[in-house]
Design a protein around this nucleic acid. Structure first.
Length: 574
RNA sequence: CGGGGCGUAGCGCAGCCUGGUAGCGCACUACACUGGGGGUGUAGUGGUCGCAGGUUCAAAUCCUGCCGUCCCGACCA
């Protein structure tokens, strides 16, 4: 590609709105432009990178035996009502109405549509297993889009869905996808980890997430320091020993804590440690009739609530959310900062480590007062015990081997064993070899194609800009002539080399703008992150040399003009 | 959804407090010089100052409402 005929839209300064490095660099390098919150255009240069990721995903999916298809973005409400997710999915599901006043949604995922296809087109076990995938735009009306392309409302996802006669077959395909995903992220040059995950709103049983390790990651991932255990913090079990309820040791006392709203403030006033307190959190979730019910959750003062675990402990299908001040006041006649479990008139779930406290301090359910010397057995005997807190660094690993450390990750892939969650309710069945109708087992497998681009930048950048892994660079080679307009020699050689490299199948960006300055060309090429660069100047040519530099290196290497093609072959195919 | 910030040229910002000519840097156009790491000079292009209403002789500036956008929070008990 000739730069004179291409759109290179770089900027010196990052737009004020960009916070994380990948977002800044994507804007500065001219890969993307924002249209509205969570909606981005891909400029030609960015699209080239996007296509490279897409191609890797497609090649590996095809190699795994999966079949590509394409399904609509707009989906009829009926299918979602049938799977019951029309009511379960929440506000992220963007619902729209057509001119006939019929309900539709923009697809955030495609379990319903694929299940509808398969139940109509597959009638026999002989056609199973089958794995169908698409690479396509999804829409999720995120409560808060952020970090540029990382969390957008419209994004590109590879989603695959497999169908099986039994669990054994599903497990086999699942294992195959695990390997395929590893291949894909490997080829994308990413430092990633597969971790055990919660299944969230998609549902199902077993599930792994693939995370790219990065400080800016939105997820916390926990690792054992002495085994290969790795899990999303949402899923990591806290191995708290369950102790018998202790007998009361102190008298329960009400103490004034005027104005104290946080654990820290109360601790300061009463001169105690957070671990001697408990916090009482009020959550709410809609029940089957859409009524909002309140639940009280208790964790130790130095621990954090794990909403996913809490949802499971409460056996709720719908996601829970923190109750508003208003809801709390209406139901409990008390501000959130002064709540406690004693005589609380709603369902109470207590985390194991909070339940293990023999004596603790908590809110008195009266504004400005707390209770000291509280004992579960004596003062608050009725509650449900469960694991509802996040693990913390140093907790024992759930597999019994070693202790946990915590890192941050960007979720780029997720594989699920759905079992019969959708096939059952949507009646996706086949006849088995005995002519008996059986519900199919399903798996589903997602990859955030656009997110991979941002994740790759998060992991690969320096003060000059992006440093693409070879496999993702928008161009493999940048060809930079010096004084193109003045030196016939440079011009002729550059043209020849451009022709040769292009003929050899390389993606070359030829910086052929007549009066471009060396400095700005180099700055652009480095910002854009092109992996290999060649500089052709009169001086070098007179010595028979061309200068080569890898984006990760800081010194030029002189290559004899005659050896150039060999050199590039070595650089790019090894 | 709660809190806060911001909205003035493509980008980054000043001007607003104290109302009166719309400004700077980058980018862009032309010309000249320069020519191995974002060069210099001269001359230019480009703005309904987010939108609507109000106050005023006069509003980017003051007031009201709305919209957009970003960050933080939603783990606060």
């Amino acid at each position: 590609m000739r730069a004179s005929q291409y759109l290179i839209s770089t900027q010196k300064e990052p737009p004020a709105e960009a916070e994380v490095i990948s977002h800044q660099l994507m804007l500065r390098a001219g890969l993307i432009r924002k249209l509205a919150s969570g909606l981005y255009s891909w400029l030609p240069l960015g699209l080239r990178v996007f296509r490279k990721v897409e191609a890797i995903v497609r090649e590996e999916m095809d190699a795994s035996g999966a079949l590509e298809l394409s399904m609509p973005v707009v989906q009829p409400a009926e299918l979602w009502q049938e799977s019951q997710r029309w009511s379960q999915f929440g506000a992220e599901l963007l619902r729209i109405r057509d001119r006939h006043d019929r309900d539709f949604c923009l697809g955030p995922t495609h379990e319903e549509v694929i299940t509808d296809i398969v139940r109509n087109d597959i009638r026999s076990y002989r056609q199973l297993p089958i794995n169908l995938y698409q690479i396509q735009t999804k829409f999720r009306d995120e409560r808060r889009p952020r970090f540029g392309i990382m969390r957008t409302r419209e994004f590109c996802m590879k989603d695959a869905y497999s169908f099986h006669l039994d669990e054994a077959s599903l497990q086999k395909t699942y294992d195959g996808m695990y390997q395929t995903y590893s291949n894909i992220f490997e080829r994308c040059g990413l430092d990633y980890r597969a971790v055990i995950a919660d299944t969230g709103s998609i549902g199902g049983s077993h599930s792994h997430e693939f995370h790219v390790l990065a400080e800016s990651g939105e997820d916390a991932i926990v690792f054992s320091d002495s085994s290969d255990y790795a899990a999303n913090i949402e899923k990591a079990q806290a191995l708290t020993p369950i102790e018998d309820a202790a007998a009361p040791a102190e008298i329960m006392l009400q103490v004034a804590t005027p104005g104290d709203k946080t654990i820290d403030q109360v601790c300061k006033t009463l001169s105690i440690e957070p671990r001697q307190m408990i916090k009482t959190l009020i959550v709410t979730a809609p029940d089957a009739d859409g009524q909002h019910q309140l639940f009280a959750l208790v964790v130790r003062g130095d621990h954090q609530l794990n909403e996913v675990k809490a949802q499971h402990a409460l056996q709720l299908d719908n996601e829970i959310g923190m109750a508003s001040e208003e809801q709390i006041y209406k139901a409990l006649n008390c501000a959130a900062g002064s709540l406690g479990p004693v005589d609380l008139p709603i369902t109470l779930v207590v985390d194991h480590s909070a339940a293990n406290l023999a004596t603790f301090t908590c809110g008195a359910n009266r504004d400005g007062y707390h209770l000291r010397g509280v004992n579960w057995q004596r003062d608050c005997p009725t509650y449900i015990r469960a694991d509802i807190r996040n693990v913390v660094t140093g907790d024992p690993s759930p597999d019994g081997l070693g202790n946990l450390t915590i890192k941050r990750g960007i979720e780029v892939g997720h594989i699920f064993q759905l079992g019969t969650k959708y096939s059952e309710i949507m009646k996706a069945r086949v006849l088995d070899e005995n002519g008996v109708e059986r519900v199919m087992h399903m798996g589903c497998y997602g990859i955030g194609v656009s997110r991979i681009v941002a994740a790759a930048i998060e992991q690969n950048n320096d003060e000059r800009g992006i440093v693409w892994p070879d496999s993702l660079a928008p161009f493999q080679i940048a060809l930079i002539p010096i004084n193109l307009h003045k030196s016939e020699h440079v011009k002729k050689t550059a043209e020849e080399i451009y022709a040769q490299l292009t003929a050899a199948g390389y993606d070359v960006l030829f910086m052929d703008e007549n009066k471009a300055r060396l400095g700005s060309m180099l700055a652009d090429v480095e910002l854009i992150g092109i992996t290999h660069r060649l500089v052709i100047g009169e001086r070098g040519l007179n010595d028979g040399n061309i200068e080569y530099r890898h984006r990760r290196e800081s010194e030029n290497r002189l290559i004899a003009t005659a050896d150039l093609m060999d050199h590039m072959r070595q650089q790019i195919h090894t």
